[in-house]
Write a protein that binds this DNA or RNA. Structure first.
Length: 445
DNA sequence: TCTGGGGTCCTAGGACCC
DNA sequence: TCTGGGGTCCTAGGACCC
């Protein structure tokens, strides 16, 4: 059996832990730049706020319905996530952290009543961390996901499923008839791996519920759609096709892209933004001990501003040899910028992607046929560069991101807000991640 | 005025190989 | 009339996930 645990309205729940006054009130967490709603409390959902709703379209609810909106505080959510995952790991022997608020746990070899155990872990996470969760248990990942969906709906939407499945739903501990009834009551679009497009196509083909899909012929599904969907069909039938991935593999690409707080027109502003993004991506790259063989950078105007002239361009820059050096990657990003920048546009977004990633420990060195020093890098001897990057990372780790950076990323210290930096007007403190953000239990008199 | 960010996997088709 | 056979690698685009 496999369990899937996820945090309810995770970002909103994280904020409520430190601001209990928000409990019971409609609450949304906004994307970067306070652009749109990316998490909603149950009360906010009840107001009809959709996932991804632009803030400017729903902000009237602040006044009319007491809606509270906060800027996303990803540092806090990441830290809360780690705490939740370490508690969830107690469920079984192997855990796959699937996203910031979800994990699969392998329950094979765990004796006793699994649903009871799940409820105990759930209670512990609620008590120790303050985050409400739901759990689904099933013989495959897809069924565990489905069970989790049922557990959530049974709790929130009375009448959708039998109430005893609320919070914890164990598909492996019920009769076939009971399980089939639950699958038949579930829209096919709710199945993991069925998105909007596939959902519409399946309904057109007369497949409306999860039960219909489970009963479909995998070979036919594979011919008509894809092997991915055929696996989903088998998984719904109880045959495991997706392994638990408990040892995360290295990323194949690393990106840092941002929408700007305000439109940007000048090349030097874009250069500062791209420098910052390249440095951040390079840091992630070093964290997984990889090198990048290629770098992609792009700049673009806003597709939402239809009255403005539109421009979007990117270029891929092959690197002379794979590297994770911030200076070399920044150089490449700025070279791309020089090639694609056109004056006269209101740029709204830019980004850097690192591609062709490979292990740093198995590096293919360049054969230096026509160069003075063997293996010489334009920035200096590779080993010293590597130590320089280690020093950079440890200083920034200790004193905070942006303490030490390249001059091309901006020279003001502390870094000043610029047109390209994010708007985050409603950000809460780093309650668990910064000394100056510690929650105050009681003010001194 | 105002619309997020970061990933994965699969497929079809073309280039190229012997 | 008749135009091989079998394979790999790469890329762009589509679909999905949270």
């Amino acid at each position: 059996m496999i369990a899937l645990l996820d945090g309810n309205n995770f970002y909103a729940s994280c904020e409520r832990v430190f601001q209990p006054r928000l409990v019971g009130r409609p609450l949304v967490v906004l994307s970067n730049n306070d652009g749109c709603a990316i998490a909603r409390s149950e009360e906010a959902k009840a107001l009809g706020i959709k996932m991804g709703a632009p803030w400017f379209q729903i902000r009237h609810l602040e006044r009319e319905a007491g809606l509270v909106a906060l800027s996303a505080n990803f540092e806090l959510y990441g830290d809360m996530s780690e705490r939740m995952m370490s508690l969830a790991a107690g469920l079984g022997h192997r855990q796959e952290v699937y996203s910031i608020d979800e994990c699969f746990v392998d329950l094979d070899g765990i004796p006793g009543d699994l649903a009871l155990r799940a409820r105990q872990i759930r209670t512990r996470i609620l008590q120790w961390l303050g985050i409400p969760t739901c759990m689904g248990i099933g013989p495959t990942k897809t069924l565990a996901k489905l069970a989790n969906h049922i557990a959530k709906c049974a709790e929130r939407k009375p009448g959708s499923y039998p109430p005893h499945h609320a919070q914890v739903c164990h598909l492996g501990a019920m009769t076939e008839g009971e399980r089939n009834a639950l699958l038949a009551a579930t829209e096919v679009g709710e199945v993991w791996g069925v998105g909007r497009r596939l959902g519409a196509q399946l309904r057109q083909a007369g497949i409306h519920s999860a039960m219909d899909l489970a009963r479909a012929d995998p070979a036919t599904v594979q011919r008509r759609w894809s092997i991915v969907l055929a696996k989903t069909v088998r998984e719904l039938g109880g045959t495991a096709c997706l392994d638990l991935d408990d040892i995360p593999s290295d990323k194949q690409q690393i990106a840092c892209t941002r929408s700007f707080g305000q439109p940007v027109t000048e090349a030097h502003e874009l250069a500062q933004a791209l420098s910052t993004f390249a440095a951040r991506a390079a840091h992630k790259l070093r964290a997984q001990n990889s090198h990048a063989g290629q770098l992609m950078a792009f700049i673009r105007t806003s597709p939402f501003r239809k009255q403005d002239p539109q421009y979007s361009a990117y270029r891929i820059c092959p690197l002379p040899e794979p590297t994770s050096d911030t200076a070399l990657l920044t150089q490449a990003a700025l070279a791309v910028l020089r090639a694609i920048y056109r004056p006269g546009y209101h740029y709204a977004k830019a980004g850097v992607m690192l591609l062709d990633l490979q292990s740093a420990s198995a590096q293919q060195l360049r054969l230096a046929l026509d160069e003075p020093g063997e293996g010489a890098s334009p920035a200096g001897p590779p080993r010293e560069r590597s130590r320089l990057m280690q020093a950079l990372d440890s200083i920034n780790q200790r004193h905070g991101r942006g303490t030490l950076q390249l001059a091309s990323a901006g020279t003001a210290h502390p870094p000043q807000p610029a047109r390209w930096t994010m708007r985050q007007e409603r950000r809460t403190p780093g309650y668990t991640t910064r000394w100056d953000g510690l929650a105050v239990a009681k003010e001194r008199a």
